[in-house]
Design a protein around this nucleic acid. Sequence first.
DNA 1: TATATTCCTATTAATCAGATAGGAATATGG
DNA 2: CCATATTCCTATCTGATTAATAGGAATATA
Lengths: 133, 133
Amino acid sequence: MFSVSARTQYAIRAMSCLAKREGRSATSAEIAQSESIPAKYLEGILSRLKASGLIESERGKNGGYRMAKDPAEIRMLEIVEAIDGRIKPVTCVDAPGACSQGGDCHPRNFWIGLKTTIDAYLAERTLKDVSEG
Amino acid sequence: MFSVSARTQYAIRAMSCLAKREGRSATSAEIAQSESIPAKYLEGILSRLKASGLIESERGKNGGYRMAKDPAEIRMLEIVEAIDGRIKPVTCVDAPGACSQGGDCHPRNFWIGLKTTIDAYLAERTLKDVSEG
DNA sequence: TATATTCCTATTAATCAGATAGGAATATGG
DNA sequence: CCATATTCCTATCTGATTAATAGGAATATA
Ligand code: FES
Ligand code: FES
């Protein structure tokens, strides 16, 4: 429970790898090799990171991926949400009044509090913090 | 990601149900019915809660389960760990030096920090807080 | 035009959570 | 001693989700 998907761990490694290049680009294959990530699987991950605006890409010969911003400006929460979407400990976090207790459901408030706590932790640390310390 | 297992949600409902009885006992079947939990599945959950000392049981006719302590003394973390074990965002939380970075691995420290944050949240709230407010 | 790349879609494989099944052990009351 | 109600134990099945693979279309370069 509360475990981090392989996808997200791969994504963080890939982002760290790009961060080291300081703007220079790397191909999907290079990242896959350097970080030991299944190559084709990684493509799907980079695609999500790009969709969220964290990285940019060029295709064709000499193409590749590169950071879209300074690693110090990228919050870990952004990476996590790019890959797995909003954190939802329980499905009813976005559904007030889902159970019999109506709007003021204590268990729901409890889980929302947890989500808020996790979000805060992830938002106050950046890729720079995590990849180099 | 970071989602709470159905088992743990069932466990919390079951504990709340027992908490309402203030020491009086209830059978597995009664709890299952009252909380809409698959009966046979619930048996396995109650068994883990008992193994962790959160509830007690008698078997045979007139048997059943009852709270082993005051709900105000039961931390939510205890319930979660009784069901799903220690929280481990990544497998290496208990394996220092698992990756190439050796003992001082920044990503690992990052995830351990998250674990600590989640643990703290869950430890500072009790069953009483969550079941009645 | 050959080649290297991203990008898109579909499929397969592996893993795990959720649920079910059957019955052994045990306690109670008649 | 027996019928019954319960916990308790172990095995299995199922479905959902994640992880991974496959194939090729689109695009850029030289
Ligand atoms: S709304 Fe989710 S438990 Fe009440
Ligand atoms: S020890 Fe887990 S990532 Fe380094």
